[in-house]
Design a protein around this nucleic acid. Structure first.
Lengths: 161, 161
DNA sequence: CGCCACTGCTTGCAATTGCAAACGGAATGG
DNA sequence: CCATTCCGTTTGCAATTGCAAGCAGTGGCG
């Protein structure tokens, strides 16, 4: 995994923000930090606390741990194996769950098949993700679940809205 | 591990120090922080940065993550499985995709926490799996994708909303 | 053209963080 | 007794963090 140097948390945040296609002010508002401060952070003029990183992560809808790693607060855990291999080897999952996860993973991979298209996919960000249809297999696999949890779906929409 | 309330990082540090049977000055020296400051931290008068926590953890010879948890910087989670590590390490995914996959995985884990049923995986038992409802979290994670079968208008509203 | 909305950045300031110097108290040894 | 060493705490200060007010630039619209 090619990580940029720890310490370029500002660059990383800007990248993530641009991937999400939101302005600095929008992120600042979503994160609950001041936009000048966020600007300074992105440009490396300030070193944010873990708490601010946490807020920024929420605004970016990424894990705070990812930002902590970038900021050098925690170590990047060892990547032991490929995702699919790990999923197959996980004894905590049913076979069906494994397949669902693998299908989702692979559909994600199709969205970003290679480095060549990384920039393209990175720019649209969530929009592209939203526009990408689920593979039919995946839809079929999840259909029973979706039906049984219709109320939950509505609730979640409300929550996100 | 019975955790005290998050926020009592100072008490926790003092406890660990006393368990190690070292004085405040010794720990301060081993940690590379000033002893007055360490005293203030232990008494809750100051809120140390993650960097200082890291140093204190080294002085105490405990993991910095334990202190981060106490300080509320990260959540106390199960030691990450191979799957989670693999997902995080996968460079072909965006950060958001990683988070989605991890959320799904963890939801699956919650569905089947018991080991006793692992052996039943050999028996496909698809009907059983079909009967399992999706947790709301999982539905939320996949909501954008499932909705994408439509025009995507809803997604646009959600985005603006 | 002017106006408006949005963009990211500059600046000054209050609050916080982390430290060094110093303090008072307890324990130990001569 | 005094001197020394160690203990944890107090105090003042410099540097840093995070913010609010404001700036200049850009693009769209009437």
């Amino acid at each position: 995994m090619a990580l940029p140097k720890v310490g370029s948390i500002g660059e990383y945040i800007r990248e993530q923000r641009q991937q999400a296609k939101i302005s600095l002010r929008q992120l600042a508002e979503q994160a609950g930090v001041s936009n000048p401060y966020l600007s300074q952070i992105e440009r490396g003029l300030r070193k944010p606390s873990a708490e601010i990183l946490n807020q920024i992560a929420k605004g970016l809808r990424i894990s705070s741990q990812a930002l902590y790693v970038q900021a050098g607060l925690i170590e990047d855990r060892e990547p032991p194996s490929d995702v699919i291999s790990a999923i197959r080897a996980d004894t905590h999952l049913t076979e069906r769950q494994r397949q669902v996860l693998i299908d989702i993973y692979e559909s994600f991979r199709k969205e970003r098949p290679g480095d060549g298209q990384t920039s393209q996919n990175a720019d649209p960000g969530p929009s592209t993700d939203d526009e990408q249809p689920l593979p039919p297999e995946l839809v079929a696999a999840l259909e029973p679940y979706a039906t049984s949890d219709g109320n939950g779906t509505v609730n979640q929409e409300t929550k996100e809205g």
